[in-house]
Design a protein around this nucleic acid. Structure first.
Length: 364
DNA sequence: AAGCCGGGGGC
DNA sequence: GCCCCAGGCTT
């Protein structure tokens, strides 16, 4: 099978099997850019409803550029990797101010946008502008490592460079954007991590991994590090005005720009109630007492796991003072849904809102 | 080069 | 439970 056969078989399969996506074949560089940011480390099915809401809320790059970061994060809430939203928002302002509101169409310029790396630059340039830049993502790594029988560790930069070279050689002159999307679509639908459907694959005849029965061994990935598990104590402080205290995480922190209930990590030989009292003293300079346990939940982040223990608290002494560069706010239960919260904290607000709703129904 | 950065679905 | 996902940024 020549490179031309590879392209023809793949593109014919793509034309007959590609999924419908709101940004696919639209020709709109703005939509294609947004979709590629959302699709970083995120499945199509997960990103799609977010993409639709995002476009309803920010139809053009101008709407995005003039929006508040909090509104952008609110639309992004639940999608994860929130720095993507902050970088995208900042990049939209650059597009408006420096590029006349047009998504750049050259390698040098598009790489000036925050959140755009080699993958996203190649994806936008090829899909929106028909430029010949081959993408290398998880799908491409899997498809090409199997096809060429590359058994080296795909975590290494050297192996990724090798795969980039293969992709650069293979990519179609006439349809570079479709070629890129076709490899990724094949990786998502047929050449899957486990149990690939090789009988449906247009490249099967020349695939080294298939011929040598190594599709379960390629791509090879060195073992991942174990993720530590932490115990986290948080305090839900209520005042006499039926308000709760929330804190804004700084932009340079994990979950930056999102709101949370204050708290922190349990130390060795520390009672969880004492963890909450200590953390609130350190963060807010107040003495609190624990009223009662509120909720316990497990959550997994990208590189550690937590069990979160939330308690209802009352202030015994002092007035909450935010740390430097951290904002705090007293808000009603109703207002909780207006602020962007990361997932674990959102589970707490949902229970608070349900309880509050139940209370009101009882009073009526 | 390695670590950091979310959340969800498949197995 | 673990793995993976249309990766990028920071050190």
């Amino acid at each position: 099978m020549t490179d031309t056969d590879f392209r023809n078989h793949l593109l014919a399969w793509y034309d007959n099997n590609k999924r419908d996506m709101p940004w696919r074949d639209c020709g709109d560089p703005y939509k294609i850019w947004i979709s590629e940011i959302m699709l970083q480390q995120t499945r199509v099915d997960q990103a799609t409803p977010y993409f639709k809401r995002f476009m309803d809320r920010f139809p053009t790059v101008h709407d995005l550029a003039k929006a508040d970061q909090q509104d952008v994060l609110k639309v992004w809430e639940g999608l994860g990797y929130y720095s993507r939203a902050r970088h995208l928002h900042a990049a939209s302002k650059l597009v408006v101010e420096e590029f006349d509101g047009k998504v750049p169409n050259t390698w040098e310029e598009i790489n000036e946008l925050k959140g755009v790396g080699p993958y996203t630059a190649s994806a936008v340039l090829s899909i929106a502008y028909q430029k010949k830049h081959a993408v290398v993502d998880g799908n491409v790594i899997r498809v090409l490592s199997r096809y060429f029988g590359i058994e080296d560790d795909v975590r290494s930069t050297k192996t990724k460079n090798t795969i980039q070279d293969y992709a650069d050689d293979l990519i179609s002159e006439e349809r570079p954007g479709d070629f890129n999307q076709a490899v990724m679509e094949l990786g998502a639908m047929v050449c899957t991590p486990s149990n690939p459907e090789c009988e449906k694959c247009p490249l099967q005849a020349n695939c080294v991994a298939h011929k040598t029965v190594k599709t379960e061994d390629i791509p090879y990935k060195s073992p991942a590090k174990k993720r530590p598990h932490h115990q986290i104590g948080v305090g839900i402080i209520m005042n006499n005005n039926e308000e709760v205290l929330i804190a804004l995480r700084p932009d340079d922190a994990m979950l930056g720009g999102m709101w949370e209930f204050p708290g922190g990590k349990q130390e060795e030989n520390e009672k969880m109630e004492d963890t909450v009292i200590r953390e609130l003293r350190e963060e807010l300079d107040v003495d609190v007492s624990i009223s009662k346990p509120f909720m316990k939940l497990d959550h997994a982040y990208s590189h550690f796991k937590i069990t979160m223990h939330a308690y209802l608290c009352e202030i015994e002494a002092g007035t909450p003072q935010p740390n430097t560069s951290q904002e705090i706010r007293w808000i009603t239960i109703d207002e909780l849904e207006d602020y962007p919260f990361p997932k674990a904290n959102r589970k707490l607000t949902e229970k608070l809102m349900n309880l509050d709703k139940g209370q009101q129904e009882l009073e009526i």
